[in-house]
Nucleic acid binder design. Structure first.
Lengths: 141, 141
DNA sequence: AAATTAACTTGCAAAATACAAGTTATAATG
DNA sequence: CATTATAACTTGTATTTTGCAAGTTAATTT
């Protein structure tokens, strides 16, 4: 079920991005898809940030209406759906990586974070390729 | 007046970024500073997205408490203040540029947008340098 | 001295979010 | 094959956040 894309508040490229993918919960869903390879409603619900089910449903609908994700029946389980990133959604990977680089530099480090940052710095193209092929880059926490 | 940084909701680098600078209004203020060289309360209020004055005050306080911007009296006009990006805030420039690149690819183009994108693609380091030296990259719309 | 400007604060209505419970369609189990 | 369980939601309502209008304070300008 794909609703109308919302009208945007200004003519600015930055505002367009923010209106499209930039709210907290939308972006955490995208993180789940890109970093952890998640693709199911229940997987998103299970993330540590504890999104409410009605909000998750609304965000998935919004992202779909903006053409960032798409929804398809799971051929192996007809009560499940598989969400995946469209080209437009995959193109957001560089934004995600820059956010991770920024946070890495400004948040106290730990081994897991150091490994992720090291991989982004030394093998950025490999990371981007993994996102495109839906290969999980991290195991969920 | 610098309040306490808020506690963050999860251990994730992406969530840290989003909690720190990722809400709609905060990021638009950062855009105003980085792209247009704005530095005054009244300039932020005048942006085309029409932020409410109480929300702007709250966001500036938040960004300051997170160490992304700093506030100083204007030596030339004692009823005014000058907000500026800290190192931590300047480090967000790559995130901004990736958002602009993404939007450029997915929003119908116009001359102004083409020029901005072209500059980012051919002179990224120059753009980043301009942001660090508080040189406006665009004139406000 | 009076009017104006810059940067806010306050009060309240409207909208968005969070929480709990309920619904529907499929699939697995005894 | 009837019952229970699972996956993906929807609905109702309390709480929180946002948006709008008006007011305050301190420093200029006229």
């Amino acid at each position: 079920m794909k609703s109308e894309p919302k009208k945007h508040s200004s003519d600015c490229l930055v505002a367009y991005g923010i209106d499209t993918f930039g709210d907290r919960w939308s972006f955490l869903v995208l993180r789940d898809m890109m970093l952890y390879g998640k693709c199911r409603y229940g997987d998103f619900l299970a993330s540590e940030e504890q999104i409410a089910t009605n909000i998750l449903a609304a965000r998935l609908k919004h992202l779909e209406s903006e053409g960032i994700i798409s929804k398809a029946r799971d051929p192996e389980n007809r009560r499940s759906y598989i969400y995946s990133l469209t080209e437009k959604g995959l193109d957001l990977a560089p934004v995600l990586l820059e956010i991770i680089r920024w946070s890495s530099r400004h948040l106290k480090t730990n081994a897991r974070r150091r490994r992720l940052l090291a991989r982004i710095e030394t093998d950025r193209d490999g990371v981007l390729a993994d996102i495109r092929t839906r290969t999980a880059i991290l195991t969920p926490p």
